[in-house]
Computed example of a mutant assay.
Amino acid sequence: MSPRSLGQPALADLADAPATSRWVRSGALRLHVLDYGGDGVPLLVLPGITSPAITMDFVARELTELVRPVVLDVRGRGLSDGGDGDAYDITTYARDAEAVISGLGLDRPLLFGHSMGARIAAVTAVRARVPVGGVVAVDPPLSGTGRDPYPTSLPVFLGQLEQAVRGTDADEVARSWPRWPRREQELRARWLSSCGEQAVAATHRGFESEDFFDWWPGVPSPVVLLYGEQSPVVTAEGVRELTDTHPDARFMPVPETGHMVFWDNPPAALKLLREALAYVAAGRAEHAPGPSHG
């Protein structure tokens, strides 16, 4: 099993991010977040299966005039602790999100997740263990038991991890992700080795066994689903099922993007994300709890 590791150049990336590292406990695990501060509505950002928090920096820093982004290093990635082999199911991930919300005192935060993170956001909102103000889910895996498999196989993910552990660079990353901005290729090269093989493998198994549609219809409004127009993860058929099973949701296709919407077309994806966040923030305000009388 490949060990998790981070070199000095990766840690130096944190100094370039306009965010403060904070730590929260979820059970016995220590979870790391990047808190971008400010007085805006809190926004918990939940990244994808092999995306440590720092790889969402280029997204978070574009949102600080609208919200207060708090980006989680999901367990088993980045600087957060890893769990045992059975500690990477969707409910455990949701408990971690709840721990961050409670531990940092985030008041009715908006939840924004990409891919795996979109699943976590949906489940956290449905569980309702902590108050949530709204959800923006971006290109969630729609695979599950009896459905088409997740388009990227586990061997592909593990091959990328092996490259990262032995040492990779932006040029090698670019061969897999040629459309990405150069800085994001560099961050991928430096930070992918912080993702645990056990975490990635267990999460991928969850993509095949945990059905997003068990949770999706119960996600409380306001909720927006963004998806890549060319995504193999959220297909046209998937969009139809998502619409049929949650008619109150708002849907926003992101042009000229696949599954990695923010990396494939940053200007368009960030514009639509800001619109989505403005929409759910307005809904959060409309549903604000009234004054108590006691």
Results as ranks from 00 to 15, higher is better:
278 A>R: 14
54 I>N: 07
157 F>Y: 15
137 A>D: 01
164 A>F: 13
282 A>R: 15
147 R>K: 13
65 E>M: 08
216 W>H: 11
284 R>L: 04
59 V>L: 13
94 A>R: 05
172 E>L: 13
258 G>F: 06
19 A>Y: 06
32 H>V: 02
293 H>D: 06
211 D>T: 01
117 G>D: 05
212 F>K: 10
133 G>K: 15
162 E>P: 00
29 L>Y: 05
235 T>Y: 08
232 P>W: 13
182 R>D: 06
25 R>G: 01
176 S>I: 05
290 G>H: 12
47 P>E: 10
171 D>C: 06
267 P>F: 15
278 A>Y: 00
94 A>N: 02
275 E>F: 06
11 L>D: 02
262 F>I: 03
259 H>D: 01
65 E>C: 06
20 T>C: 05
266 P>T: 12
157 F>M: 09
86 D>H: 14
28 A>S: 12
99 A>G: 03
75 R>Q: 02
34 L>I: 01
91 T>H: 11
275 E>P: 00
266 P>R: 15
239 V>Y: 11
206 G>K: 05
97 A>K: 11
148 D>G: 12
232 P>L: 12
187 L>M: 10
74 V>Y: 00
185 Q>M: 11
134 G>W: 07
27 G>W: 03
62 E>W: 07
255 P>Y: 14
154 L>T: 03
42 P>A: 14
270 L>K: 13
72 L>S: 09
197 E>N: 10
210 E>I: 00
158 L>C: 09
72 L>E: 03
4 R>M: 00
164 A>L: 09
243 T>Q: 15
279 Y>T: 11
175 R>G: 02
273 L>Q: 02
100 V>P: 02
29 L>T: 00
151 P>N: 11
146 G>H: 10
33 V>G: 07
286 E>Q: 13
53 A>P: 00
161 L>K: 11
54 I>L: 14
39 D>F: 11
126 V>E: 02
78 G>V: 04
81 D>F: 03
279 Y>R: 14
44 L>P: 05
290 G>N: 06
254 V>K: 15
157 F>W: 15
188 R>L: 07
165 V>G: 04
105 G>E: 09
83 G>H: 10
53 A>V: 02
159 G>F: 11
32 H>N: 08
256 E>Y: 14
128 A>L: 04
105 G>C: 09
169 D>R: 14
276 A>K: 04
278 A>D: 04
148 D>K: 15
69 P>V: 03
240 R>C: 02
271 K>C: 02
76 G>T: 01
